[in-house]
Amino acid sequence: MLARTASNLFWLARYMERADYLARLLQVAGHMSAVRVDADGNSEWESAIAAAGCHEEFFARHEAATAESVIDYLAFDRGNPSSICNCIETSRRNARAVRTALTSDMWEAVNTSWMELRDFESSEMNEDRLTEFLDWVKARTSLVHGVYANTMLRRDGFHFTRIGQFLERADNTARLLDVKYHVRLPTVQDVGGVIDYYQWLAVLRVVGARRAYRVLFKGHVEPAQVAELLILRPEFPRSLVFCFEQICLNLDAIEAHDPRLSSDCKRIAHSQYAALRFGQIEPIIEQGLHEFLSELVDRCGLLGAEIARGHLF
């Protein structure tokens, strides 16, 4: 298939996945700041910025991470290339550039999302409307992902779309967990406290895994088990191992590429998948979860670049 088309599909899916993640992040931050008992109600918002991976860009433009500034920056700010609005806009632009590679259902799902987005943007935003907006983002991204899974031919176009979605998801999951470990807790004493407990619960909420956690582990929320769920459990569709399995399956399914060019991205994907598949949570935590996760985030970046190079994007 046309290299430009592959690239557009890859990014279309990435941006949709990112919009979904940001909507979840904002919903949970809002929820958490409402249940917080301490005086400083803003740390939830600051960690949302960190988990979105745009700490530097945000503080270049805002003095403090407040509810207003963070919601505006992550959801609506047209000056932030990764705001939800811009993610949907960019997805739609990518879709429009490769309309012929999309099924008509897929195009309609993306295009209708974009049209409805404009209605949201032109209306007054208040708390109720924000809730409606974030629910809408989650519903629309689910729809887009569902429609492509149900209508696209299982050929290269599908595989590149899939890889984009799961590479983005892996990156998001790793950042979310990393932030929890290293930014959120104000003091050492807080570890294991009430706040800590709610914060781990919040991580599960972001990835929609409260129930999954109960089913797999039963009982109280334990940090190590949350990490295990998000990193190593192949049953959980947002875990890193699940994401890398999808990436590997789809990379392998792409037809007839030049083996010299594409071997690097396959090597990176497969070795990471193997490490996750056979990994255990205790040694990972012992050797430093933060190191493990930040290395993984770097890997995701490298893998994205190698996929592009290997398939001539």
Binding site: L2, R4, T100, D156, D258
Partner: peptide, 27 residues
């Protein structure tokens, strides 16, 4: 779409030895 053919832009095309090619993921 109606014809089931690729929609290309100029940058997707390349002429080498008077033969026209498009840049695809497989070369």
């Amino acid at each position: 779409d109606e014809m089931g053919i690729d929609l290309v832009e100029g940058a997707d095309l390349l002429v080498k030895n008077e033969i026209c090619y498009m840049r695809s993921t497989s070369g």
